[in-house]
């Protein structure tokens, strides 16, 4: 007689998967950044006083990450910078998804002349250098948002908020192109299927068809693309902030903290100058670990949602 295998035994032994590792890593970084936000914002104004004793202190118990050129604790700066960087990354990717999905779905659904005009526009924007577009959009939008937030916030807060919102709109407003192309392709193939034909036979209205019948079928590519878009947007933010175009000091972000760290490095040709390595190492490490978490999580989601298992 066959031995009875109980249900629990038959199940494969539990192993930590890449997706789980990624999620834990992300939570370990993101939760402290956002939870401490009220304190880091409070600290932000208090810490701007110069304290000569505390300038460039290497990591210690009092300041676990060390301090910077104004004696501010780098731990607090990194926490607040993390909240800013993550917000920009996620919001910019979300914006890019919204624009891309809408654009691609409309182009694919209506087809014909509308489709070709919309896709030509995508072609044109594709031909522009990405970084240039982001910078120009950023410059063009910043007065608009500054005035908008000036309506209901204090001056300094308005300027800071406008800075961040402009950057995320600029990044999101440029990176939707790939999404639009992918979604359009998907919608074109869905449109040829009988269930879409049935909706028009039933006399269903276009918005309802788009939202109720097309959108649910697009979840796969949307998730796949989102896992690529978030790390991309975070990297863009850090890159722009590094160039001095993105989040502007004294507001921290991982990008401009790293940039500040680079500027404090002594010229390599001159030996024996003090090295304030912690100014560069912490923001870079946090950025790297976040990207690692996102990449792991992205892989897992892609395996789950991508029917072809196509990973890139």
């Amino acid at each position: 007689m066959q031995p009875v295998v109980s249900d629990t035994e038959a199940r494969p032994r539990w192993r930590p998967t890449a997706g789980l590792v990624g999620t834990v890593l992300l939570l370990l970084i993101a939760v402290p950044c956002f939870v401490t936000l009220p304190w880091s914002v409070a600290n932000y104004d208090a810490q701007n006083v110069n304290d000569l004793e505390a300038i460039y202190a290497s990591p210690s118990v009092a300041a676990p990450f060390g301090t910077d050129e104004l004696g501010r604790s780098l731990l607090w700066r990194c926490l607040m910078g993390g909240a800013i960087s993550l917000t920009i990354g996620i919001a910019a990717a979300g914006l890019a998804l919204c624009i891309g999905v809408t654009w691609g779905a409309l182009a694919g659904y209506f087809g014909g002349r509308i489709d070709s005009v919309m896709m030509r526009i995508v072609d044109i924007v594709y031909g522009l250098p990405y970084i240039l577009m982001v910078v120009l959009l950023d410059l063009a939008l910043s007065p608009v948002f500054e005035r908008f937030f000036g309506l209901f916030l204090r001056d300094a807060t308005a300027a800071r908020t406008a800075d961040i919102v402009t950057l995320l709109v600029a990044i999101g407003g440029v990176s939707w192109l790939t999404m639009a192309r992918v979604i359009r392709g998907q919608v074109l193939s869905l449109r040829a299927q009988p269930f879409i034909e049935a909706t028009s036979a039933m006399g269903m209205r276009t918005p309802r068809v788009l939202v109720r019948h097309l959108l649910p079928n697009l979840v796969g590519p949307i998730v796949v693309y989102a896992t690529l878009a978030v790390p991309q947007a975070i990297l863009q933010e850090s890159f722009l902030s590094f160039l001095g175009i993105g989040v502007r000091a004294p507001l921290p972000s991982w990008g401009n903290l790293a940039a500040a760290g680079v500027n404090e490095l002594p010229a390599l040709a001159i030996r024996d100058l003090p090295m304030y390595w912690w100014l560069l190492v912490w923001p870079c490490a946090l950025l790297g670990l976040t990207l690692l978490g996102l990449n792991f999580l992205g892989d897992a989601l892609r395996e789950r949602f991508d029917p072809k298992g196509r990973r890139s």
């Binding site: 990297l235 850090s238 590094f242 790293a258 680079v262 490095l265 390599l268 560069l280 870079c284 950025l287 790297g288 670990l289 990207l291 690692l292 990449n295 792991f296 892989d299």
Partner: peptide, 22 residues
């Protein structure tokens, strides 16, 4: 590869310059 993708390019450049050149 995933580890490499997650390294900020800034860190790669600065470390490379420091180690191999300096």
């Amino acid at each position: 590869c995933v580890l490499g993708m997650s390294l900020p390019s800034l860190a790669v450049i600065i470390f490379g310059q420091y180690f191999f050149a300096y």
